[in-house]
Amino acid sequence: MIITLCLMAAITFMTRYLFLHKRLPFEIGPKGQKFLSFSAPAVLTAIWVPIVALPSGELHLSLTNPYIIGALTAIVVAYKTANIYATTLLGMIAFYCFL
């Protein structure tokens, strides 16, 4: 088990470190940099939308899905306040009210 855990740790660390290594056989130009500037909204959204839309592995897009209610609430609060605390808290409250 300990070896498995160390191998897993090596893989996650490698994926984080590789492109921060000093010498790489390529350079990223302004176009590449522009492309990469979209990575945060892209990855974070690609993580949260399936959590909400596929709560038990199947598509469930309706107001009977508490994840959808919670997410819609969070989106409105985030849009109005841009506040992480308010968004997370009110989203969670809406979610648990309908769970």
């Binding site: 959590i51 919670g70 985030a78 849009y79 992480i84 997370t88 989203g91 979610f95």
Partner: peptide, 17 residues
């Protein structure tokens, strides 16, 4: 429904951006 907290946080990070 513990995973909803992650969704809520990421919404809080993404929407204002």
């Amino acid at each position: 429904g513990l995973d909803f907290a992650i969704a809520a946080t990421f919404i809080a990070l993404v929407i204002p951006s």
